[in-house]
Each structure stands twice: as structure tokens, then as C-alpha cells.
Nucleic acid binder design. Structure first.
Length: 299
DNA sequence: TGTTTCCCTAAGTC
DNA sequence: AGACTTAGGGAAA
């Protein structure tokens, strides 16, 4: 059964939201996007101010979609707080309506542990492989999809099988993290109620989770909009667009390095926090997408 | 114009 | 500070 969700005057762009690289389980065919979210298959398209969708389960109703796509965020207010320079104004104009997505924390955590040193097509491939190998099949409109496996399943997975999913050295990090989560030492949902710094400290204790992965999980699944993940693209954004905020020697030194030390990461974060304000997580996502599109257009 | 090969780099962590 | 580790994708052949 097809359901409609009226967006009213709420700024929203389904295409920008699903194209910007924050999530790895959606595919576009024509106007329609199909993806697996929390045990359900969704097929969605946007026609101006309306979202039309179908789902494999009735649990995926308009309220579910509204929560997943963060339609509760007041985007205009968020824009007014950070769109104060050339780059952000351009990014907001170009990607108007792009929203962060409220992902399922466990899948988000594994996705970003896998994301280290990989490009987005490769990450999508890994998550697809893991779901096909360890997830549960769901039939939707005559096609077979696979849910993302629970931590209990990955905790008992053979390393060999995870490596066959092309995880490489990430396989052991995924399995050991799954064990810790599954043993009940960590309740990911409880992090949502904690302060940003406390939640981050907990995540940093998991194998395969450093500053950047922790920030991604906090931003994309645990409602911490003050997270500001700095990967190679965001490093370039900060050091190229906002270099005047740093010592020239620092800029030159950090530009040349492949990876950031914890101290350097913190220095870039502190700039983001003071310059972009309370919604720096949103600013991050716009600038990340903007920089990647610029690079693609230029080459 | 269609393959194959080579090379660089990727939503970093420890 | 340097090792880890691998596949996608563009350039070159």
C-alpha cells in the first residue's frame, strides 16, 4: 500500500539527503530510492512537497519516516545559525533541504568502523556483503533484501567469513565490538541520553573506534549535533577554506600528513565548534558534500 | 572504441 | 611515528 507524507513548507530534499554519503544502504532507480532500514525495506520518492512511500512492514508509517529523516529539525533556524560565509551559503543553496538522517546506532557503528581507509562504493559493498551473509532475508515486491545482522550474530561470526565480506583488517574490530555490545557492557541507546563528551568517551573504548568514527556514530545515529567528524575531506575543507584561523606552520604541517594525531584533530574540532556554533554537525555535512562535489567537478 | 593493467587513494586506528 | 590492508576508479597502455 502506498502512503503519502505531506511535507508542508518544511525544506527537505530526499535526493541530497540520500546522496551525500552519510548512509550506505540506499539505491536510486529513476525517481525512486530503495533501502533497508531497521528490519524494513522502504521504497520512497519525493514529488515536490510530498513523499510517497511503500514499505515491507506496516510499522514503517509516516511517523517512522519523519523520525528517520529528522523532519523535526528546524532547518531554517539551523541555516540561520551557520550560513554566514561564502562556502556555507553556496553549499546551502546547492543542497537546500539536505538533512542528517537518524540511523540505527548499531548498524551505523559497524558501517563507520568499516569505513576507515575505504571509499563510499567499497563501504556500500562491505555492508551489502555482511547483510547478505549474516542478515535475515526480507521479500519485498518480489525481490529479496537482507536486514543488517544483530550484534549477537556478528559476535559469533568467524573472522574468515567476515573477511570474505571484504572487511580486511576491520573484521576483528567488528567482531570484538559486537562481542562487547552483545555482552551488555554497552547499551548504545543509553548513549543518546548522555552528554556528548561522556558518550564519546564510551565509544572511544571500542576497538576500531577513534575520534572520527565516534563522531560519525554520535552525529548520524545518536542525536549529537555538536559532533564534527573530520576525515580527509573535512581536513581539506578546514585547512583550505578556513586556513586563516590557524598558524601557517600548523596548516602546512597538517596538510602533508595522511592522518591526524588526536591533538591535531582536537585543534580542528575546536575551531569548528567556535566558528560554526551549536549546529556544527550540520555544517560538517554540507561542507563535506560540497567539497566532494567540487573535487569531482574539477577533475 | 573496448579491454587490460597500473597506480593512487579512500568518511582512520592503534 | 609507522604499520596495517584492500578494492574502487581513473589514467594509461
Amino acid at each position: 500500500m502506498q502512503i503519502q507524507l505531506d511535507l508542508g513548507k518544511t525544506p527537505f530534499s530526499l535526493d541530497h539527503t540520500l546522496s551525500c554519503g552519510q548512509t550506505f544502504r540506499w539505491e536510486r532507480q529513476g525517481d525512486w530510492w530503495t533501502g533497508v532500514v531497521s528490519q524494513k525495506v522502504l521504497k520512497v520518492r519525493q514529488v515536490n512537497g510530498t513523499m510517497e512511500f511503500e514499505a515491507s512492514s506496516e510499522a514503517a508509517d509516516a511517523q517512522f519516516l519523519s523520525r528517520y529523516f529528522r523532519l523535526d529539525d528546524d532547518l531554517l533556524r539551523i541555516y540561520s545559525r551557520f550560513a554566514k560565509d561564502h562556502y556555507l551559503c553556496n553549499a546551502v543553496r546547492e543542497f537546500y533541504g539536505l538533512r542528517l538522517i537518524r540511523q540505527e546506532p548499531w548498524e551505523c557503528l559497524v558501517s563507520y568502523i568499516c569505513a576507515t581507509f575505504k571509499n563510499i562504493p567499497a563501504i556500500k559493498q562491505m555492508i551489502r556483503n555482511v547483510s547478505r551473509r549474516f542478515g535475515r532475508p526480507v521479500l519485498f515486491k518480489g525481490q529479496q533484501f537482507f536486514t543488517f545482522p544483530e550484534s549477537s550474530v556478528l559476535a559469533e561470526a568467524e573472522l574468515r567469513d567476515l573477511k570474505l565480506c571484504k572487511l580486511g583488517y576491520r573484521a576483528s574490530n567488528v567482531r570484538e565490538t559486537a562481542k562487547l555490545i552483545n555482552d551488555g557492557n554497552f547499551d548504545l541507546e543509553s548513549l543518546r541520553e548522555m552528554a556528548f563528551k561522556d558518550a564519546k568517551r564510551v565509544l572511544l573504548s571500542l576497538p576500531g573506534v577513534g575520534e572520527k568514527v565516534a563522531d560519525c556514530v554520535l552525529l548520524f545515529s545518536l542525536d549529537k549535533l555538536e559532533a564534527f567528524p573530520i576525515d580527509v575531506w573535512m581536513k581539506r575543507v578546514v585547512l583550505e577554506y578556513y586556513s586563516e584561523n590557524f598558524e601557517p606552520a600548523f596548516v602546512e604541517k597538517v596538510k602533508l600528513k595522511r592522518t591526524l594525531s588526536r591533538r591535531e584533530y582536537q585543534t580542528l574540532y575546536d575551531f569548528g565548534r567556535s566558528y560554526f556554533g551549536e549546529y556544527l554537525g550540520y555544517a560538517q555535512e554540507y561542507l563535506y558534500h560540497y567539497k566532494r562535489c567540487q573535487a569531482q567537478a574539477g577533475s
